[in-house]
């Protein structure tokens, strides 16, 4: 299974990079969501993937009787999922507020913090850079 996951992570990463490099903040957020899926799959695959039983211990036993899946990456992923959820929400709200202030989701036009040195003519400059 790991080879498939490896390819899948690669696909997700490529999609993430491409989305984050689009000029649209909304696409960027979709990229962010895919990135956290890719990261979780990386952790999961690194811990070894087998179609084993869940890491539970039967009542009355002190250890799992049969082979169970690795609990360590699962614990890491659990928190990672919740954290990436809050990050995604944060980014969404940021996009929302940015749109309220700047009336655009085009990242090339978000120049409030770092205005282009030439001042006006952002559009022309952009064409030159591209």
């Amino acid at each position: 299974m790991e080879p498939i996951i490896s390819v899948l992570v690669g696909v997700l990463m490529a999609a993430t990079v491409y989305l984050m490099l689009s000029r649209n903040f909304v696409r960027f957020i979709f990229g962010l969501a895919l990135l956290s899926h890719a990261a979780n799959l990386v952790i999961f695959a690194s811990g070894g993937m087998t179609r084993a039983r869940p890491p539970l211990i039967a009542a009355g036993e002190s250890q799992p009787l049969s082979d169970v899946s690795n609990a360590v990456p699962q614990a890491l992923m659990l928190t990672a999922i919740v954290i990436s959820f809050s990050l995604l929400t944060f980014a969404l709200v940021l996009a929302f507020r940015t749109f309220q202030e700047l009336e655009t989701v085009d990242t090339d036009r978000m120049r409030a913090a770092e205005p282009s040195p030439e001042g006006a003519g952002d559009e022309a400059r952009e064409r030159a850079v591209d």
Binding site: E2, P3, I5, S6, V7, V9, G10, V11, L12, M13, A14, A15, T16, V17, Y18, L21, S22, R23, N24, A38, V42, A45, S46, D106, D108, R127, D130
Partner: peptide, 27 residues
Amino acid sequence: VWPSGPARLGNAFVAVTVGIGVTLLML
């Protein structure tokens, strides 16, 4: 508005490079 054609091609190249790199690393 998407980036211009050449820029998009460059982005795609970087994206695919990162993707392949991550896949190989994972393998």
